[in-house]
């Protein structure tokens, strides 16, 4: 053993605190982004990336604190769900936004969302 049990406990607690703080910060930044960004799609970015990682970091922090395998298994499941569902949800919402004309396309520079755009084959 490198350290005794008490030291290990301290180390994991400090790590957990770091993870929880980072996760909470990212969630907060996602909130700011969701409120501040000017368009639907930009907000979607804020809600997918920092939010997913923020949640993952919070859950890692939690699993470092509780240290029970059954809890870690369930938390791993939550992380997997988040990683799978967040992009799908973001895609569905932004596609719906485009198809119902809720996206202000004049702000997109460049906007290659044209059906007859041949440039991409280059």
């Amino acid at each position: 053993m490198l350290f005794d049990a008490g030291t290990w406990s301290l180390i994991t607690d400090v790590l957990a605190a770091v993870f929880i703080l980072a996760g909470a910060f990212l969630t907060f930044a996602a909130g700011i982004g969701a409120l501040r960004f000017p368009s639907l799609l930009a907000r979607m970015h804020a809600v997918t990336k920092p939010q997913v990682l923020g949640l993952i970091l919070l859950l890692i922090g939690l699993s470092l604190r509780v240290r029970s395998w059954s809890a870690v298994a369930m938390l791993a499941l939550v992380v997997a769900f988040q990683l799978l569902t967040a992009p799908v949800g973001a895609h569905l919402v932004s596609r719906a936004g485009f198809r119902t004309g809720k996206v202000d396309e004049s702000e997109l520079q460049p906007n290659q969302m044209e059906p007859d755009d041949d440039e991409h084959t280059a």
Binding site: A24, T27, L55, L58, G61, L62, R65, V66
Partner: peptide, 8 residues
């Protein structure tokens, strides 16, 4: 996140 922090 809040529930996770409380549980932690």
């Amino acid at each position: 996140g809040a529930i996770a922090i409380e549980a932690a």
